[in-house]
Design a protein around this nucleic acid. Structure first.
Length: 590
DNA sequence: TTTAGGG
DNA sequence: CCCTAAA
């Protein structure tokens, strides 16, 4: 399209005519319905303006046939328009249109008519203006509308009415209202429209229209983007308009701006049920392309305004590209990524520290506190403390870790923090690891673990205490019976391979403890009798070690003498007097 | 690395 | 459960 093709003309009377329509030729080779999916076809691609008639003034007035139709729609609605002022350009009528052209025009007409359906009540376009030949389904009639005194207000009404009942966002409405108010105070009448209500209606209608053909979200997003785009464009135009006003440009130029607003309105009034359902099943895409038409049209550098628009829109190349070229496609990946990124950022910012894992949060609090403690005394520290919800027992930061482990070399604060971190992380991992072990193990872990954890927190490298369950003891005994005493690695490999928290050393230690326990228990049981047995029962209950297991341990101890333990074992099996002296302190201690 | 033993 | 020495 050439630049001239988009310029609207003024009638010979010299009055700016913003409704000048040129006869459009339909290119039969390009059909909206046969266009490939990936390449939306703008209307202007097959509506070719063959000629420029009167290029008098309006670089700022951009109307193609489609928008003119919209103007007609509005005029039908407004009821304030003097149809006498409409003149049909005889050149507009093309009685010799081919079949394909007729179809395309018919589609245009249907779109046009459909756009009316939402707002025209009991009024048939064809009946109101026979001259338009629209009832003849030739949508590309060229019209000349005299630029009468009422035109401005009319235009304003057009813009408002065309946008209001159909689809529009509050922004676009406001933009247009701004434009209108700057041009004609009469238009303020329309500013009383409830934009939110209009938004509701518009959205509802839009959803109805696309119920069967479009995905709601996609449609909404695209539509909103387009509207934002329009609003922005409006804004740009308004600014430009104001600058032009300052330069003393005639009011017709402002009308040009307003026509641009109408363009937006027209472009947004397309997806009406009538337009869609009267057409083929691909109505949604058609409507999209239809909208694209207006965008492309606006994008065409046909005037200074358009240039300004284009440049400004190029700055928004994302939106522009999306709106003008990728209408029937999904939003570009970059857009999605940016959106997601933005959402995630805002989400994170909103959530902040509250969504950290408790473990990390504790560490964060602690490290931050240590760091800040040097510089700030109270405020931030207190805030951090408040963030800590106390799921764990918080150890005072000045609490020396060496308290629990005096042998450890005194670590620095940072070192302590790191160690604590490791320890806590280890605890978490181990707990997760232990949980599927068995129900018993979970029971055992429940309360004691919390206490243990809180107590062992200060010590850096001490492993969390995990009580031996009876099942574990049984496994250990079985392992010893199979592999023999002292082959702890093998036992672990065979029976405790799934228990990462039980090392071979642990097995050895446990076996040693079992030996002691068995010695003690059995010895006491033999010696003292029932009274001590009751005590043993208590102890046994506390240890959860069945007596049968202890007996088994003793048998194994005999079979596989444990080094150096065998001495005590021997003493255990030795005369009672000797065992008494050694075991009494133990039993009493327990 | 594993085991034994002290703590 | 940790630590260390010894193998």
């Amino acid at each position: 399209m050439t630049l001239d093709n988009h310029r609207n003309k003024l009638p010979s009377n010299g009055i700016p005519n913003m409704f000048t329509c040129k006869p459009y030729q339909v290119d039969p080779d390009i059909s909206m319905f046969t266009a490939s999916e990936g390449e939306p076809v703008g209307l202007e691609h097959f509506l070719v303006q063959p000629e420029c008639k009167e290029d008098l003034v309006s670089d700022f007035i951009d109307l193609d046939a489609f928008q003119i139709q919209k103007c007609f729609n509005m005029e039908d609605i407004s009821g304030t328009f003097e149809y006498d002022q409409l003149k049909l350009d005889s050149d507009a009528v093309h009685p010799n249109l081919s079949q394909g052209e007729g179809k395309n025009l018919e589609f245009l007409y249907e779109l046009y008519k459909g756009s009316n359906n939402g707002i025209v009540q009991g009024k048939d376009t064809s009946s109101t203006s026979e001259e338009f030949h629209l009832d003849a389904k030739y949508a590309d009639i060229a019209l000349e509308l005299d630029h009468g005194p009422c035109k401005e207000s009319y235009m304003g009404n057009v813009a408002l009415e065309s946008q209001a009942p159909e689809v529009c966002t509050g922004d676009s409405v406001n933009e247009i209202l701004d434009l209108s108010s700057t041009n004609d105070p009469m238009l303020k009448y329309s500013s009383s429209l409830d934009s939110s209500l209009l938004d509701h209606i518009a959205t509802k209608e839009l959803h109805e229209a696309f119920k069967d053909v479009c995905d709601y979200e996609t449609l909404d997003r695209e539509w909103l983007q387009q509207h934002d785009f329009f609003a922005m464009k409006n804004h740009v135009e308004m600014e430009n308009s104001m600058s032009l006003i300052k330069c003393g440009v005639t009011s017709s130029e402002h009308e040009g701006k307003m026509l641009s607003s109408i363009d937006y309105a027209a472009s947004t009034t397309d997806p009406t049920p009538g337009a869609i359902y009267d057409e083929t099943k691909s109505g949604g895409q058609q409507v999209k392309r239809k909208r694209l038409t207006s965008c492309d049209f606006l994008k065409t550098p046909n005037s200074e305004v358009s240039k300004v628009e284009k440049s400004s829109l190029d700055g928004e190349d994302n939106a522009e590209t999306l709106v003008t070229q990728k209408r029937s496609r999904k939003p570009p990946r970059r857009y999605i990524e940016e959106s997601l990124d933005y959402e995630s950022k805002s989400y994170n910012k909103k959530c902040g520290i509250a969504y950290r894992r408790p473990n990390d949060r504790f560490l964060h609090v602690r490290s931050q506190k240590q760091k800040w403690q040097k510089y700030f005394q109270t405020e931030q520290v207190v805030c951090q403390d408040d963030c800590f919800d106390g799921n764990c027992i918080q150890v005072p930061f000045d609490l020396p870790a060496e308290k629990e482990h005096p042998k450890k070399n005194k670590s620095s604060v940072v070192q302590d923090s790191e160690d604590c971190k490791d320890n806590r992380l280890l605890c978490l991992g181990e707990k997760l690891d232990v949980e599927p072990f068995s129900a018993e193990s979970q029971e055992d872990l429940s309360e004691d673990e919390c206490v243990t954890r809180s107590y062992t927190k200060g010590s850096s490298r001490r492993k969390r205490h995990i009580s031996w369950t009876p099942s574990e003891v049984v496994k250990l005994v079985e392992g010893v019976s199979q592999c023999g005493v002292g082959r702890w690695t093998e036992i672990k490999r065979l029976l405790f391979s799934s228990s990462s928290h039980r090392t071979s050393v642990d097995l050895k230690d446990k076996w040693r403890n079992l030996l002691r326990a068995s010695c003690t228990q059995l010895q006491i049981k033999e010696k003292v009798g029932l009274k001590m047995f009751v005590e043993q029962g208590r102890k046994q209950a506390s240890n959860n070690i069945p007596e049968s297991v202890l007996w088994r341990v003793r048998e194994l101890a005999v079979m596989y003498p444990y080094p150096r333990e065998s001495k005590s074992k021997v003493s255990f099996t030795a005369p009672p007097a000797a065992t008494n002296t050694t075991l009494v302190p133990l039993s009493t201690a327990v």
